[in-house]
Design a binder for these strands. Structure first.
Lengths: 335, 335
DNA sequence: CTGTTAGCGCCTTCAG
DNA sequence: CTGAAGGCGCTAACAG
């Protein structure tokens, strides 16, 4: 691997001149610049990033923390963030927690410490202690789907979106509306679950409909979890006539459960999901669309902005729009 | 950010002693070591990785190149690789190509150059030029799902697996068997497509069944692509009685197409997929299971091994097992 | 067992 | 406009 000294030697200049020429800083005669560039090309020179970082006193890598890359939502957000970060020529260090154990290990060891210029955290509700750990790194922090003090955030209005979903069902005449949602003490703490649950309750209350706690079933954001939750709901003495699931995966599980129990969708049971997953259209699922890739992109943009203006200690908070997508999994209540 | 000099000062020793104590190298009295460790803890010291890399002359970051993190297969493989790499305390630089443009940009700029100790490439059939570019970085290279000269690889036996799938259909009495597969000139060049197509042809030929080119329909590994391909097959004057799809996504699309055309699965049409995607069981899909996460893990392991024994220029080649998973999307030919 | 010295590759003063 | 010198933080010899 050739160094800048090699380049300088080949070009017949000093290393500092070579450095200036290559980076376009200072005043350099066009002739020397050309010569240096030619030499660099010839030697296939690329600056050693460790040396550059050491002397500049900063890294340009960005840490991306994600619970599970395999889940649709996270993969989408990663794609958006990655694209923006690459476009700005930063490195992206991926950290996939992969469950409670990985999460604990991460926060214990803080492997990003001293490694990154900024951190992007996808959809983890940070405990106070975790937030403090992250803050201790003294680098800008942006979260997606969760709002932590001292950090910037990109969110959707989970509460309003959930209300909209439930309102849609209420408009169709439904009153007994089930909720399939995040686990109450989810080890991964997705805050959005709590917000969506709140929106659900508020919509019902505002419409004068009772909130029946037996219709609220926790689940784990997987198809199978949605299936189990739906089975429980449909086995109730007075089952709901409609269900709002906090993710499309769970909604799909619910559709499957209904089918296998001889309950027709939407004739006997209306179902609304959340996300507008790739498969939602396939299942004719009415759902709340959220712009997941854009959430990742926007978070990355905010982080880049924070990096370029480090003095301004301000945090930014973006709220992106959601939209109710009407498909064929919901229908008016039949009496 | 405190430096090792701060730690040394606080512990009342020289920086080199502090360094040795912290890294457990050389001979250090238990007393000094304890004092240094205490000082480091107090100052919350973490070595500056750029400085460490600069002096050691190497980075410990590993580059992971993936076409689309959002596709199930890649997300799974990334998860496996990430886990192993993290476990070995290496950084993981993610590079998501995201299509032909991103691919070209990547190979033009080679942003991993001088950044990484090794590279993991997921399921890209590398052109000779691309392979040369990668080789020019002079770091170990491991590919998953593709075999390139000079690189280690982790593969499955795509040809045999495809043969098995087709053989299963032949055993059920089918003779007209459609193939839904990779695009012939897929801009992302997935080699496995070609190998699976070969397996398909060989199985038919070995059984004395004719290979009808009109039954071979290219597609793009998406649900929708599978749907379109199936529609074309089913609209044929003499449609096939069975179909082998090169991915579960495409198989699912085919199931949907059949359903909407009034063709029953498996009574009128048997379908075999490939991958054992999370949704395969959901669709009762008979499929070829491949251990995707394990492919990622094994690739990472091989890379780590290459890094720890850089002298041995040998490449390793792992072939992992696949398995035919029988479900309800295939049935004997009805006459 | 510990301190001193030198240098990894680069960039940024500071002099010319 | 260009070169020399110094130092970023750390570790590997080399002396003690």
């Amino acid at each position: 691997m050739s160094t800048i000294t090699d380049v300088a030697a080949l070009a017949g200049v000093s290393p500092s001149t070579a450095s200036r020429a290559l980076r376009g800083s200072g005043q350099i005669s066009a002739a020397t610049r050309a010569r240096v560039e030619e030499a660099a090309r010839e030697l296939d020179y690329v600056a050693n990033p460790s040396a550059v970082r050491l002397v500049n006193g900063r890294t340009d890598a960005i840490g991306l923390v994600v619970p599970f890359v395999t889940r649709w939502f996270f993969a989408q957000a990663v794609t958006g963030a990655e694209d923006v970060i690459r476009g700005a020529d930063h490195d992206l260090l991926l950290y996939n927690l992969g469950g409670p154990d990985g999460r604990q290990r991460f926060f214990e060891r803080m492997p990003l410490r001293n490694h990154v210029a900024g951190v992007l955290v996808l959809s983890l509700a940070l405990s106070e202690k975790e937030r403090a750990q992250l803050a201790q790194m003294r680098v800008p922090l942006v979260t997606v789907g969760h709002d932590a003090p001292g950090a910037s955030s990109v969110m959707i209005d989970d509460r309003a979106a959930a209300s909209t979903a439930v309102q849609h069902l209420l408009n169709l005449g439904h009153r007994r509306i089930g909720l399939i949602g995040g686990l109450p003490e989810d080890p991964m703490h997705f805050t959005s679950s709590a917000l969506r649950a709140r929106g659900y309750r508020e919509a019902l209350t505002a419409a004068g409909a009772p909130v029946d706690e037996t219709l609220i079933v926790p689940s784990d954001y997987t198809i199978d979890g949605g299936r189990r939750a739906a089975v429980r709901l449909l086995a109730l003495p007075t089952p709901p006539t409609a269900v709002f699931a906090m993710s499309d995966e769970m909604a799909i599980g619910a559709i499957d459960a209904a089918r296998s129990m001889g309950v027709r969708v939407p004739e006997d049971l209306s179902i609304v999901g959340f996300d507008d997953h790739d498969l939602a259209a396939f299942f004719h699922l009415t759902t709340i669309r959220q712009p997941v890739q854009e959430e990742g992109r926007e978070a990355a943009r905010i982080l880049l902005r924070m990096l370029s203006a480090p003095d301004e200690a301000e945090t930014a908070h973006a709220v992106l729009d959601t939209e109710l997508i009407l498909r064929a999994s919901t229908a008016p209540l039949r009496r």
